[in-house]
Design a protein around this nucleic acid. Sequence first.
DNA 1: GCCAACGTTGGC
DNA 2: GCCAACGTTGGC
Length: 142
Amino acid sequence: MPSYWLIKVEPSVYPFAKLLEEGSTEWSGVRNFQARNNLRAMAPGDLALYYHSQEGKAVVGVAQITSAPYPDPTAPGEDWTAVKVGPVCTLKQEVTLAQVKAIKGLAKFPLVTHSRLSVAKVTSEHFKQILALGKTTLPKRR
DNA sequence: GCCAACGTTGGC
DNA sequence: GCCAACGTTGGC
């Protein structure tokens, strides 16, 4: 059973489209303990909802974790963590923050409860719910 | 651009 | 160990 996550980024920094284009990227630069600890709990094959903060304010895609956590090379000598991330699929319909907030079952979704946390754990129920709102089913895994 | 929320820092 | 000050994030 994979774990489910929510990762946030400003689209002006690294939009989901760029992840699709490049096929893989390093998720580094996280400087928050809680977020770092979440990165450390990730494993290859875990899935992540990809949220555009600021300009966008919507979940736009699904990504997958493709590496084990490793020391963040952008902070040499310091105790931070990075992982590698790849694209899985684009949501057929993006799921906006306003939508999430309007749904009672998502009151505990991290975008609502921890709006500033850039890497958060998501329950499989919430994950499925977001996919359903996005009218999206995951491609078959191999 | 403003401001609320929240995490971190540092003085005591 | 508390708490005020400060910086950052992100929604509006």
